[in-house]
Design a protein around this nucleic acid. Sequence first.
DNA 1: TTAACACTTGAACAATTATTTATATTTATA
DNA 2: TATAAATATAAATAATTGTTCAAGTGTTAA
Lengths: 126, 126
Amino acid sequence: MKERDELDRCDCNVIHEDVVNAVREKMPSEENLYDLAELFKVFGDTTRVKILWALDEAEMCVCDLAVLLNMTQSAISHQLRVLKQARLVKYRKEGKIVYYSLDDEHIKNIFDQGLIHINEKHWRGV
Amino acid sequence: MKERDELDRCDCNVIHEDVVNAVREKMPSEENLYDLAELFKVFGDTTRVKILWALDEAEMCVCDLAVLLNMTQSAISHQLRVLKQARLVKYRKEGKIVYYSLDDEHIKNIFDQGLIHINEKHWRGV
DNA sequence: TTAACACTTGAACAATTATTTATATTTATA
DNA sequence: TATAAATATAAATAATTGTTCAAGTGTTAA
């Protein structure tokens, strides 16, 4: 029975061993990289991107978002739950209406960086 | 049979109509928001985040990445394909070895913004 | 108290996706 | 030319996920 290491190791690793080890030492913790991926997973959905974009413009209630995005209140509510858990939105209750707003000033920055990438790649021709 | 609009519209929309309409006008195109979500979807996987982070440190071949991340060459190759399609990495061939490297200077910026969010939320207590 | 409203939640379903396994391709070497 | 090395790819599987549907809160108003 072969070991994992033995299975995947190939000759070029001997040549590149120093490089690989140097990178390994500089790598952030497993936990940090996991959290980072989890955060981007939240941004990786059209509905949530739209919600965040909308909330960056104005505070809105669930029903407003449902009409704006032409979706079910339930679907919006489910996604707001995800955004809440990721600490990206906060809310305040006013009677039976729940108003949501952004809970992070970096969202616009992250979006802008993303758009820069998209636009750059676009005029380079896809 | 009720219409979609009629189904989801609720009383508060009448009050918030102006706000919702204003936001609707300012919203980026459907296509832009879709592309943005697609980009973040690529960042939303631990393996890909690790690969990008590693390639930001040094150019590496598929085999190096497999050893570094303790994963199958096949798995790495599959993810590199995704990153290639998203124009986040580029490659050069040297004999039978294929060296991959970053194809975008904004990746580090996006990661940093993400980490700022994570760390901020962390000391606020989860 | 009852009914309507705004919203939340849980289960079910369809769709997507990351990894594995096995096979194919390309290049270097014996 | 035959073999091995480095990588790519195709199909299969398991796991995750977004939306819908139905039922459930909690708040307001009649």
